[in-house]
Amino acid sequence: MSDSECIRTFKFKFRRMELRKEKIIEKLLFVSALSSILIVFFIIAFMLKESIPALALGWDFFFGMTWHPSHEQFGIFPIVVTTFVVGIGALAIAAAIGIPTAIFLAEFSPRWLRNIIKPCVEMLVGIPSIVLGFFGLMVLVVFIRDSFGGYGECILAGWIILAIMTLPHVISISEDSIRAVPKGYKEASLALGATQLQTIRRAILPNARSGILASLILGMGNAVGETMAVLMVIGNPEIPWIPSSILEPVRVLTSTIVLEYSYVVWGSMHQHALFAIGVVLFVIVAIFNLVTTVAVKGRFGATTAIKGVIGSR
């Protein structure tokens, strides 16, 4: 046992060095944890600083009808409207496909089929948005041009592409919240003689509602903030207007930034306006995220749904 003598040495005293080392490590970890806060503050500070001159235009900026930088006109209203039109439409499509898919996966699907669909849905998130946009440009836009006429690059194409991008989120969060509904509800309903469809409609969906809603709002946030994919398929006319048909080319907030940042004169109102668009985007998406959190809180399946929100983004 003499081998272990070295670890037997036992003194009633502080090992100051090691204790100090542990303290330093804890401090370092704490500082790292603060880094996220710091980054967000920096983002807000710098974005605001750069955009204040444009935001100060007030009404002319937010509700001005014309965006025409070379004429010093910076009204983003048409762009904001289109952004919402594109986002809501995409979401409607994603919901129409995603919610039934989620119900199918959670309630009907045999295991093997689920094992195929689920990874595919998750892989769909992984397709780089630029690649998806390129695909849209080559296939979707051509298809729309050939079958409906017009440019092809239009709201409809944006809808479809964004729907594909938000679909995975809608599916996975909805499925999680459907699964989070206690089994007892379902069994009670079935035991009362309800059919499976009735059970889903009356017992399961109402209880999964907040989770599904959260997935949609979150999807909306993603759709509004999405850049490259949508940029490639919506046309981006020089001077945006409020569209009157879904086959018209349009412009959204994100695409405006990407298309114009490279030739702005640094320090000009144009540059400030682009950063102000960034701020508007930030605020819109933040509101959606906030609403999601509130919608999910304090309802059934809340924790699972939140985890789903967290996990799938």
């Binding site: 670890i7 036992f10 003194k11 009633f12």
Partner: peptide
């Protein structure tokens, strides 16, 4: 004065 680490080793 007692180091809890050493204590738990004992």
């Amino acid at each position: 004065k007692v180091d809890v680490i050493q204590l738990r080793k004992r």
